Simulated scan of single mutants.
Amino acid sequence: MSGTHTDVPSVLAHELPRPVPADEFAACPVGEVFRRVGDKWSMLLVILLGGRPHRYNELHRAVEGISQRMLTRTLRTLESDGLVHRRVHPTVPPSVEYSLTPLGRSLLEPVSALADWAVRHEAEINASRARYADAPFGRPDAPVSDPAVR
């Protein structure tokens, strides 16, 4: 965001090329973070770990429906992204504890802002979805005989 355009959201501060090149989109670090934030389990685990460190089995019990394989994969991905720290305690058997790194903690604020936005606009989103679902051809503005549907 430039000093002269402080009211412009940062995602709009730069013009995207048209069309957006597929290889650039695939390599974009913003897209990669959005994919991580948008996957099924990652943000739930980040939020749980934001409260306090957890052992593996605590996390598994805390998230209904996640398989051990998926929990392990998600934790490894978050660890490889630098968001989660894995600490092995030298006990018999070894116990493993997961916590957020400083980078992971820094993600809590933007994720909280997005969650707050979603809660604030839930009724509007649900009303729009209902209008869309009840409209002809799934589009509230579509004429009854929409030529695009033929």
Rank of each mutant, 00 (worst) to 15 (best):
R139D: 15
D116H: 12
E24S: 12
L107S: 01
D134P: 04
R55L: 10
P110Y: 02
D116F: 09
P9A: 05
T4D: 10
H5P: 00
N57G: 02
P53A: 13
L83Y: 12
E32S: 11
S106A: 13
S80G: 00
K40F: 08
F25S: 12
R35E: 14
V111H: 00
R61A: 14
R87M: 09
R129M: 10
I125N: 02
H14V: 11
T72I: 02
I47A: 13
V111M: 12
D81A: 02
L100K: 02
L114Y: 09
D141E: 15
G82Q: 05
V149I: 15
P94A: 14
L100F: 10
E32F: 02
V149A: 15
T91D: 13
V144T: 10
L107I: 01
L103T: 07
P19E: 03
G38T: 11
V88L: 11
T72M: 07
D81G: 00
P29V: 08
H54Y: 15
P19D: 02
L100T: 04
R35C: 09
P110A: 04
E79V: 05
R36P: 00
L12V: 04
E109Y: 05
N57Y: 05
T91K: 14
F34H: 06
T4Y: 04
L108S: 06
P21Q: 08
T6K: 07
V11Q: 10
H89P: 00
G50P: 02
V33D: 08
P19H: 05
S95I: 08
P9M: 04
P29S: 13
H121V: 01
E79N: 06
R87C: 06
A123I: 05
G138Y: 03
R36Q: 04
F137N: 13
T101M: 03
T6W: 01
A148Q: 11
E58M: 11
R36A: 04
R55M: 14
S10L: 14
V37R: 00
M70D: 09
A27M: 02
L12W: 09
E64Q: 15
A22K: 00
M1E: 06
V88N: 07
S145E: 15
T74R: 13
E32Q: 14
D7V: 01
V92E: 14
V46F: 02
E15S: 06
Y56M: 05
S128P: 00
G104Y: 01
F25G: 01
A123C: 03
Y56F: 15
D134Y: 04
H121Y: 13
V119C: 01
E124P: 00
G31V: 12
T72R: 13
H89V: 10
E24V: 09
P17T: 08
P136N: 14
V46I: 15
E79T: 12
D23Q: 06
G65W: 08
L12A: 12
F137Q: 09
